[in-house]
Amino acid sequence: NRRVIAMPSVRKWAREKGVDIRLVQGTGKNGRVLKEDIDAFLAG
């Protein structure tokens, strides 16, 4: 159960899209999950 680094707005975006943010690979600094990462995860 790893800790995910993400801005609150990104966490909210993931929740709205029904995405478990822990499954998303972050591409930002220090592995931070970005809004673009959520979109890419949804795109496959």
Rank of each mutant, 00 (worst) to 15 (best):
G31N: 08
K35T: 05
G26R: 03
D39A: 08
Q25V: 14
R22T: 11
I38T: 00
N30K: 11
R3P: 11
A14L: 03
T27E: 00
I38H: 01
G44M: 15
T27R: 06
V24E: 00
K12T: 06
V4F: 06
A6N: 03
N1D: 13
V24Y: 01
Q25W: 14
K12G: 05
E16M: 14
P8W: 12
I38Y: 00
P8C: 15
G26C: 03
R32W: 08
R15K: 15
N30A: 10
P8Q: 10
T27A: 03
E36V: 13
G18A: 06
N30H: 13
R15V: 13
R2N: 11
R11P: 04
A43N: 12
K17W: 11
R11N: 03
S9A: 14
L34M: 09
D37Q: 00
Q25I: 14
R32F: 06
K29R: 13
K35G: 03
A14C: 07
N1A: 11
I5S: 07
D20L: 05
A14I: 01
D39N: 12
D39E: 10
P8A: 14
G44S: 15
R11K: 09
K12P: 00
E36K: 15
Q25N: 13
G26A: 07
I38E: 00
G18F: 06
A43Y: 11
P8Y: 10
R3T: 11
G28E: 02
I5C: 12
Q25M: 14
A43T: 11
E16I: 13
N30D: 12
W13H: 15
W13Q: 07
D39Q: 09
L42R: 07
S9Y: 13
V10Y: 01
V24P: 02
A40R: 14
R2V: 12
I5F: 11
L23S: 09
L23T: 08
L34I: 09
N30P: 00
R11M: 08
N1Q: 13
R15T: 10
S9V: 08
F41I: 06
V19W: 02
A6I: 07
V10R: 01
G28K: 02
D39L: 09
E36I: 13
K12E: 08
A43L: 14
I21D: 00
S9W: 13
M7I: 10
V4A: 06
T27P: 00
R11G: 03
Q25H: 14
A40S: 12
R3Y: 08
D20P: 06
G26W: 03
F41T: 04
E16V: 13
A43K: 14
G31E: 05
G28L: 02
R22S: 10
